[in-house]
Amino acid sequence: MSVISKPNLALTIGKYLALACYLAFALFPLYWLFKISVTPEKLIYTDGIALWPSEYTFDNFKSVILLTDFLVYFKNSIIVSFGTAAITTIIAAAAGYAFSRFNFRGKKVIIGIMLITQMFPLLIIIAPIYKIIAGLGLLNTLTSLIVVYTAFNVPFATFLMQSFFDGIPKDLEEAAMIDGCSRFQAVRKVVFPLTLPGLAATLGFVFTAAWSELLFAIMLINSNDTMTFPVGLLTFVSKFSVDWGQMMAAGVFALIPSCLFFIFIQRYLVQGLTSGAVKG
């Protein structure tokens, strides 16, 4: 707003106070996770409510890496999440492009179908999916997870991609087609470079979703070799007597990729959803 107004001291203080509250609310739980992960096991309960333990140690991190199958889970999660993110983004980009650029019969029906996929309790389809995947002999494979995750993430990713495409003027493609491009070339040379932020945002969005997913992972995977990280984390609870410090250390590790990714893409997410973001 370029309207001139006198800075109001109380308002400014209030604003920064509010910002501080938001930040504290957002970060304190993460801080607590970190605190527990560096607390030596013997102090977990005695220093339970202290803001910082009287002693700290990085042993938990060491033992997570050296003594558990955490690295396997981590690798599996990376494969599943990247695979899901990449495939979903490609499929959703194609669908979002169709929604953004074409008017065709059945468009509303297809949008309706995609909306319905967001509406029902997942449990209703878990047993059937289990049976189908088992029937195909795909239990305990990462492929089965990637396929299921992709299907569930495609609808929202499609709406995301559509709004990114909507922000790119149709004129640009038409100009490219007149300049000698086929539609595919026009998309590749003109639309694609302008959608990169959108693609990055969708990629990151789906990655975080796949990285966290637990329900299907529990159902479809029970071999240690193909467990993803959330399932693996659950084994910390059930297998041994719970080692909270180790578990939290594993949690900190697990946060790193999705948080890094999210920090990187959140800007594009906002930017891309802002209509008319791309202007010549």
């Binding site: 003027p169 004129d171 640009l172 100009a175 087609m177 007149i178 300049d179 003109v190 202007k279 010549g280």
Partner: peptide, 17 residues
């Protein structure tokens, strides 16, 4: 369009950003 060998100047200019 690409095979018609026409050039077009758009109202919005449609320059590739």
């Amino acid at each position: 369009p690409r095979d018609r060998d026409v050039a077009m100047v758009f109202q919005s200019y449609a320059l590739y950003p």
